[in-house]
Design a protein around this nucleic acid. Structure first.
Lengths: 145, 145
DNA sequence: TTTATTGGTTTACAAATGTAGACAATCATG
DNA sequence: CATGATTGTCTACATTTGTAAACCAATAAA
């Protein structure tokens, strides 16, 4: 994710997952829920929430004494973004095998599988025989060249 | 990646890609190659290489005055590892659409596509109708429950 | 209304990371 | 052999991240 120059950190991401999942939540709820998974102090979570707000990932609405936190970005695009970022750092030659493994290791619904099959069928005709690594600008590559 | 407790950082990863691609390389080569992509000073690259050596990602062999750097871990497993780590932080419900997008956006060889098709065919019969989010321990989920 | 509790704000600090200068050893060359 | 170029080592420092205590305001309970 990249909003106004600041990235979301791993710890912050875990809190976002909670807010995304619940739609919105108070800090108390968030603290309770995160502590089922992580051994973070109340204070730590508060700090993290604070940072998420200043980074514009969460907005707050005061409800009585407490705050209700709501995501300012949707989960789908966020997930897409961080994954795309990661993939951009991976050698093209590795991506095929990598995706194959991910397909195998991930629990997918029948509908997911069907749409992937469709996508692959579309891709196949124009697919190249082999993939080249673009890690280096030219022919200095020991892997594909 | 997780070797002896220390993670590889993003900047370090970029250097590993070069060494992986070339099989092995001297610092001079590495500096030259990385500077085609990144605006890093010579000194910075040296520091990063040093850290990679102490983190046991690279080994060195002295050849005359200079060092030859060689990867101590293979690229495939490393790529797999970081991706798996990322996926473990993503809601199960997002993974299907996410993978679909990755399939579409990635250049895949015919062979890659074929093996994915095969894998999907195998998976389909036992695939569930729908996927549940496991972000929260129970039924407090606004997405799937 | 006094006090305990709850929840938000500030401040703090160590470790990791990005970034690089300064210095030292080695080697090639005049 | 003296010197400049090459390459490695050490030191440095700002920023980001993880982690949390201390403090303060508002509210609920006594």
């Amino acid at each position: 994710m990249e909003v106004n120059g600041t990235e979301m950190t791993s710890a912050e991401w875990e809190l976002m997952r909670i807010v995304w999942t619940k739609g919105q939540a108070s800090s108390t709820e968030i603290i309770q829920l995160i502590q089922l998974k992580k051994d973070w102090s109340e204070s730590t979570v508060k700090t993290l929430l604070h940072r998420l707000v200043s980074k514009n990932y969460l907005s707050t609405v005061k409800e009585g004494r407490r705050f209700i936190y709501t995501p300012l970005i949707d989960e789908g695009p966020a997930v897409q973004q961080i994954t795309t970022d990661l993939f951009s750092q991976i050698c093209d030659m590795e991506k095929g095998p990598l995706l194959l493994k991910l397909l195998k290791d991930t629990t997918l619904s029948q509908a997911d599988i069907a749409s992937m099959q469709a996508a692959l069928t579309v891709k196949l005709p124009n697919a190249p025989t082999e993939i080249h690594c673009h890690c280096l600008p030219d022919d200095t590559c020991a892997k594909c060249c």
